[in-house]
């Protein structure tokens, strides 16, 4: 189980990487390698060229721009989870990263790699969708911004041209006193989710739901925002019955099927987890607002 032969390039700048991408045929970008390297070892992919992004310093780092967190594509998952801005402003991300692989893979795996691999069961993909992230893409014609909803084109298919790469992801920060939850059903700790649910919600002063974002990961070909449920919840007074009704919208999801997990299972577990995630997020929002629950 050894990688096939390829030629190796390790550019030091984004421009250099983009130039290589434009020039080389059958090239693959190597980010953290936690998905690409197994595929290379198993010879599921046979690239002629590997363009290694690990020596491009400009691709890594977390910074706040207004009410947005910009995370460089090559920022390691572990560095994101430990970043003070992420910990204080984006606890959803921290909770989600707790489910991502294991410490050895988080030490190496990157957010950009995860988004471009676009495994529908990947936690970071669900988080990006839930936060209405904008993806910063660079190519020979310069940079462009793409909303996550458009970036996730189809099953493991990001909307990037062969000569483009992801430079960063911009995550709008939720209001300071929000409630959040990231829950997932995986067979073992650290496995890809069979179903994952991300929820962020805020309350108005009367305790009604002001905003609510719900995203299902793993269940469908791309991360699925639960728009009908979000509409149902917005402006409503939260209670268990309402959360149950909102969760029931998962029954209409066109769910993935595979040899071991049928679609009905994903729909049913999605309903369970949405209901639980809403309850957790609401409880946290109540606490964050100093309200009596």
């Amino acid at each position: 189980m050894k990688p096939p032969a390829f030629l190796y390039h390790d550019p030091r700048s984004i421009d250099e990487a983009v130039a290589l991408l434009a020039r080389l045929d059958n090239a693959r970008l190597l980010a953290g390698g936690q998905s690409l390297m197994p595929m290379l070892n198993m010879r599921y992919v046979l690239p002629d060229h590997i363009i290694d992004l690990n020596r491009i310093e400009a691709l890594a780092g977390v910074r706040q721009i207004g009410e947005t967190l910009r995370i460089g594509a090559m920022t390691r998952q572990r560095d994101i989870a430990e970043h003070p801005l992420v910990r204080s402003r984006l606890p959803l991300m921290v909770e989600a990263l707790g489910h991502v692989g294991h410490r050895q893979t988080r030490n190496r795996g990157t957010i950009g790699g995860s988004l471009c691999h676009l495994d529908p069961a990947a936690e970071l993909v669900a988080v990006a969708a839930n936060l209405d992230a904008t993806i910063e893409i660079v190519g020979p014609k310069g940079a462009r911004l793409l909303p996550m909803a458009e970036f996730a084109l189809g099953f493991m298919t990001p909307a990037i041209a062969p000569d483009e790469m992801v430079a960063a992801v911009n995550l709008p920060l939720p209001a300071a006193r929000h409630g959040y939850a990231f829950l997932e059903m995986a067979r073992r700790h650290g496995d890809f989710a069979i179903v994952a649910v991300a929820v962020v919600l805020t309350l108005d002063p009367a305790g009604r739901l002001a905003t609510c974002a719900i995203t299902l990961g793993g269940a469908a070909a791309v991360p699925r925002r639960m728009a009908e449920a979000e509409t149902m919840l917005r402006g409503a007074a939260p209670d268990a019955l309402l959360f149950g009704r909102a969760a029931a919208t998962a029954r209409a999801v066109d769910a993935l099927e595979d040899a071991q997990v049928p679609g009905w299972y994903r729909r049913q577990v999605a309903e369970t987890l949405i209901e639980r995630a809403l309850a957790t997020a609401h409880r946290r929002a109540v606490a964050a607002n100093g309200m009596a629950s």
Partner: peptide, 13 residues
Amino acid sequence: GRAMRSCLMLAVQ
């Protein structure tokens, strides 16, 4: 100093 899978890294890296 960080724990990593050495099967998922190239020597050149």
